[in-house]
Write a protein that binds this DNA or RNA. Structure first.
Lengths: 212, 212
DNA sequence: GCGCATGGTGAAAACATTATCACTACCCCT
DNA sequence: AGGGGTAGTGATAATGTTTTCACCATGCGC
């Protein structure tokens, strides 16, 4: 999908909103009114531009025949390949119909959690961590952090120039960072957890986490 | 919403499907074709019936002006009042946009979990248990069970005529039932868990579950 | 046997909507 | 200086869609 102009993005946004609030796409006259255009042809041109750029599909001879071509659902990110951006295509296992507005701040993607480092906060192997994408995190938040080539989920503690990444499992080590020397790259903050109880855990058998 | 006839339910279902698959409501001719009716007026009558029964709203003079009036989202059930059905209105805290098809079998409602009886399976106080409504459960499944006037979440173990409801926390007791004498009423099985990390736990403070 | 809701056909008028033509203007790039 | 994408107005033909008319048939309760 080629880059949209500011005007085109405005119009696409209006179509999205109309669809959500009215339950049907807008007509060309409705769009013209909304943008105070005197001619429906101005709208038609924009729609054709949006269609050739792949943002929408125009159904011929059908009233309100505007279809959004956006991928829906949030991407589920699996193991993050070394050095690649979290949302790189090779890391995305699929898209799932999770409503971003169910969480606060808004959910941007899902991260499949590996290991039991957050077990005592009820985040288990295979769980989906719901992540809000941001570069900044506050003291005490659950963060998705990049350490070298790896991505980990831990709780963040900030004390002046020092930072700690604290697991919720005594079997795992707290990571101590000196922000004057080490780079702490935040990929996002955890805003929720989703677990599918009937999907078998990736390892094997029913996932029963017995206390040791 | 008054009861629908079989024919009306069929048509409502088609509208739902058309909306999901095409992204816009059907027109009357489209409905007539789908049901092999020779006249759009047959459709119009059905739509008027659906509208007076409160299933849809008809927007006058608008192409495809059919709006579904169904409540969307799954109901979140809070504390279950003694003796009342789980989904009774007084137990429902609200509706949330959770896609039922994200879970398997299909999700029917959300149950706000109280207490830490399933802590070691990563189900914490305040978590939403995603429940599939059924009266039958198999050995080993996580069940929502009614015991007298209370509703609890436990893992079910069936051994012949005996049944056990097993918590995942050594501080709680396993319930032993004799199916020849005690009634075991299953309200549903747990198919998923959803946790909102940024909503403060109902009790107080950040929900950190320290091991004892 | 009557009224009433349901489930239809057939047709036509009125209106909503799409599609296309001609023309203008601005900006950016080569 | 010219070509191409963007952003418009104005108008009209063709088609899609809603709405309403008249009429018929069945099943149900009373």
């Amino acid at each position: 999908m080629r880059e949209l102009t500011a005007r085109q993005a405005e119009i696409l946004d209006f179509i999205r909103r109309h669809l959500r609030e009215e339950g049907r796409p807008p007509t060309r006259p409705e769009l013209a009114r909304a943008f105070e255009l005197g001619s429906t042809n101005g709208v038609q041109k924009h729609l054709l531009a949006l269609a050739t750029k792949g943002a929408i599909e125009l159904v011929p001879n059908a009233a309100r025949g505007i279809r959004l071509l956006e991928e829906d659902g949030l991407p589920l990110v699996g193991r993050v390949a070394a050095g690649s951006p979290v949302l790189a295509i090779e890391n995305v296992l699929g898209r799932y119909p999770v409503d971003p507005s169910l969480f606060n701040p808004r959910a941007d993607y899902l991260l499949q959690v590996r290991g039991l480092s957050m077990r005592d906060e009820g985040i288990l192997d295979g769980d989906w961590l719901v992540v809000h994408r941001t570069r900044e995190a506050r003291n005490g938040q659950l963060v998705v952090a990049r350490l070298g080539n790896d991505v980990t989920v831990k709780r963040l503690r900030l004390r002046g120039t020092k930072a700690e990444l604290i697991p919720a499992n005594p079997d795992y080590q707290t990571l101590h960072l000196d922000l004057t020397r080490d780079a702490l790259e935040i990929e996002g903050i955890g805003v929720g957890v989703i677990r599918n109880l009937m999907a078998p855990a990736p390892s094997a058998g029913p996932r029963r986490v017995h206390r040791l």
